[in-house]
């Protein structure tokens, strides 16, 4: 292209001419998105950051001040233990979700597109399902009177119906339920753009499907998997209804306590400082997940670069 004489009429800079002299248009178009996102997203976060240092007053909500006792309480032994429980639960749920979502999404994207549609509809419908309805559904499914234990008794597999909710398993099962559709949809673009011929090529060279998946597919999607892991982790960590409804106090996570302080106890400054602690913790862990994913997974290294 550069050898053509027309290109030597230099400072024409054809590519950029498209973007010159645009005038005020792009800025006018951006005005509303910028305003809305700033006022309704950035400012609230700023308010929360400030609120953590304000003083709670009994009569109203709070008064402007600079006190550190909210953070002192947010970081006391009780809340730190709650934070640890929240993080561990979310990590376990994230891991379980990925273990199901990664192979499922891979297999799904290998199907003809028309065949994928019903599964995608189910996944989208499940994703949109209210956390409230999810909690309600699982509480029924795991209850004594209407749950699967009933079914197992009538099949003769169990002696007596039992109630598995509230409890740790109920929380984890429901966490994975809300996280799975999100994970599948987050993995979907990368997996469906993965060149079908790459795992096939591995097959022609003697790699059984699982071997090809581990040696070729996983290294190529590990970034997407890590990003999905971070997304799912944050999403689960921020869930409120599920731990509140399906968990015992032992499984009550930080969001339960944030909501409790903000709504029931009317202690917004403490809720805000808990939110900031949660935000920092979740961001750090999410970044760590992405970093682990971007660094190469341990793989059987070939000394190709040795020479």
């Amino acid at each position: 292209m550069s050898t053509r004489p027309a290109a030597s009429l230099a400072p024409m800079d054809t590519g950029a001419s498209d973007h010159r002299g645009d005038g005020p248009w792009p800025h006018a178009l951006l005005a509303w998105p910028t305003l809305a996102l700033t006022l309704l997203f950035v400012v609230p976060l700023g308010i929360i950051a400030a609120l953590g240092f304000f003083r709670r007053i009994q009569a109203g909500f709070f008064e402007v001040a600079f006190v550190t006792d909210n953070y002192a309480r947010a970081l006391d032994a009780f809340h730190l233990e709650r934070l640890a429980v929240s993080v561990v639960l979310a990590l376990v749920a994230t891991l379980a979700t990925l273990v199901v979502a990664v192979p499922f999404t891979f297999l799904l994207t290998r199907r003809p597109r028309a065949r994928q549609v019903p599964y995608l509809v189910l996944v989208l419908a499940s994703l949109s399902l209210s956390e409230v309805i999810v909690a309600f559904a699982w509480s029924l499914l795991l209850s004594r009177t209407s749950g699967i234990s009933n079914l197992l008794v009538s099949l003769g597999l169990m002696d007596a119906a039992a109630s598995w909710s509230p409890g740790l398993w109920a929380v984890l099962l429901a966490y994975v339920f809300i996280a799975l559709p999100l994970a599948i949809l987050s993995l979907y673009p990368t997996f469906s753009r993965l060149d079908q011929e790459l795992p096939e090529a591995a097959g022609t060279m003697g790699a059984a499907p699982l071997v090809g998946f581990v040696t070729v597919v996983l290294p190529l999607v590990q970034r997407a998997v890590a990003a999905t892991g971070a997304l799912v982790f944050i999403f689960v960590l921020g869930a409120y209804v599920i731990p509140q409804t399906l968990g015992r106090p032992a499984q009550w996570t930080i969001p339960v306590h944030i909501t409790d302080q903000a709504i029931m106890k009317n202690h917004l400054p403490l809720a805000a400082s808990l939110a900031i602690v949660l935000l920092v913790a979740s961001s750090l862990i999410a970044l760590a997940i992405v970093a682990i994913g971007s660094g190469r997974l341990p793989r059987i290294a070939l000394p190709g670069r040795a020479r």
Binding site: D195, E197, A201, M205, T215, P219, L220, L302
Partner: peptide, 24 residues
């Protein structure tokens, strides 16, 4: 097999690509 897109593994070096089947 040589694929239409060549299907060379982008995460491996040239030698690693050629040696892939032997590694398996």
């Amino acid at each position: 097999m040589v694929f239409q897109s060549y299907a060379l593994f982008p995460h491996l070096s040239v030698a690693e690509n050629v040696a892939y089947g032997l590694r398996i």
